[in-house]
Amino acid sequence: MEYFIQQLINGISVGSIYALIALGYTMVYGIIKLINFAHGDVFMVGSFIGLFSARYLASVGLPPVIVLIISLIISMTVSALLGISIERLAYKPLRKASRIAVLITAIGVSFFLEYSGVFVLGPQAKGFPEILNKKQYQLFGSSVQVDSNQIMILVTTVILMIILQYIVHRTKIGKAMRAVSYDMEAARLMGINVDRTISATFAIGSALAAAAGVIFGMTYNSVDPMMGVLPGLKAFVAAVLGGIGSVPGALVGGLLLGTVETEISSLGYSSWRDGVAFAVLILILIFKPSGLFGKNVREKV
């Protein structure tokens, strides 16, 4: 039983990282129906910016908590700007083009970021500082173990999801986003600045990716230019699983995917892990083609 709970905790911590990345995916898809394949690479860029600012700030001698907060802010700001520029340069000129053209451009942007990373930073994996020292907490005697990072990831993901829900449903820009998502032309006719709304979407999505990147680096202590590929793919699966376009769906999809993967490994079938995870995806899509939370088609934010 303790073994099961321990594995559940492991699964939830893996899943919260997927969910954190999936939030950005699902948000961009919700507004402009674009699967932004460069999202995983913005995650990578965010992680590197976090690494460099954390190294610098720590060398100046600031306390760890301040280092973390400032690096997070720097990384999220720079990535938000990066997201806006990607949208302006690569996607905006194609807004009237077919969706497949935009999709291929997104893959192109993804490769561009990856290999620019290799060119500038070198292909080697770099160590990432822990920033906040991990603390281990024992539950149920000493048989179940949770570390402070695992708790932090889940809490951060839930908080960011709530903020996102608030922005989308309670603020003016959120209303504009929902309007653009519903009908871009009609929104424009109603006096909504569509370009600015889409930029805001990309800025928020990229900032989320950057936050995920910094937290990922702190948890797994290694970053490299290709680090966004696999988590990006898994997060995409998580977003589809939960119903792409739905914010709570991204959280549930991420947690579900993480838990399923972990439980498969914990039963001793570690080589079947990805196979079973994708089989679950296929099964859910057979019975619920729009994903778990995909039924409210009118609000795809």
């Binding site: 594995q7 893996v14 990922f216 490994s265 914990s266």
Partner: peptide, 8 residues
């Protein structure tokens, strides 16, 4: 990047 399931 996460090996905790098997390590457990």
């Amino acid at each position: 990047s996460d090996f905790k399931a098997v390590l457990t």
